[in-house]
């Protein structure tokens, strides 16, 4: 052992020296440096996670926007279609109403015309009856009582109208 140089005082000195170095380096070097390394890696991990989250959020909000846009578009189209439908229906209604009115108007006019014609015919007949009576009075110079005459004439006219119609 002596020839190799192993001796107890030397060994103990070197042991103590190495132990002191171990303690000093642990305290002065590893602790602070490892702390910094850990901090940095945790910060990098955090920022990566944040970036990922932000990216996801952006993608989500973009999808959201897209969806809303799509919704608005379909809604608008629906609205337009509805409006067109309403307009169509309104036009149809109005047209139908107008048509109805026109036909009503026409039938009323026709009825008027007919009534007036009938009235005119009636009046004409009455006048004609009067004329015929006065003419007959003059011809036969005898006076007949009015109601009898009128009945007579009515009967004649009725017959003539029936024959005229046939």
């Amino acid at each position: 052992m002596g020839a190799l140089g192993i001796n107890l005082p030397g060994l103990i000195t070197q042991l103590v020296s190495f132990a002191i170095l171990f303690a000093l380096l642990s305290w002065l070097l590893y602790k602070p440096v490892l702390r910094v390394l850990d901090q940095r890696s945790s910060r990098i991990r955090e920022s990566l996670e944040t970036a990922e989250r932000v990216r996801q959020e952006a993608a989500e909000s973009q999808a959201d926007m897209q969806r809303q846009l799509q919704e608005a578009r379909t809604e608008g189209q629906q609205l337009i279609a509805q409006a067109r439908e309403v307009a169509d229906r309104f036009r149809e209604d109005e047209l139908a109403k107008a048509r109805q009115e026109i036909s009503a108007e026409r039938s009323r006019a026709e009825a008027n015309i007919r009534r007036e014609r009938d009235a005119a015919i009636e009046e004409l007949r009455r006048e004609f009856a009067g004329l015929a009576i006065s003419a007959a009075e003059r011809v036969i110079h005898r006076s007949l009582d009015e109601p009898t005459h009128r009945e007579l004439i009515e009967r004649v006219l009725e017959e003539s109208a029936q024959t005229g119609r046939n």
């Binding site: 020296s17 002065l28 070097l29 901090q39 940095r40 910060r43």
Partner: peptide
């Protein structure tokens, strides 16, 4: 050697930056 390592450690860790 111990002195050298300790001095280096102190110098290197005096102002640790990110």
């Amino acid at each position: 050697a111990i002195l050298f390592l300790v001095v280096i450690s102190v110098l290197a860790t005096r102002r640790l930056k990110d």
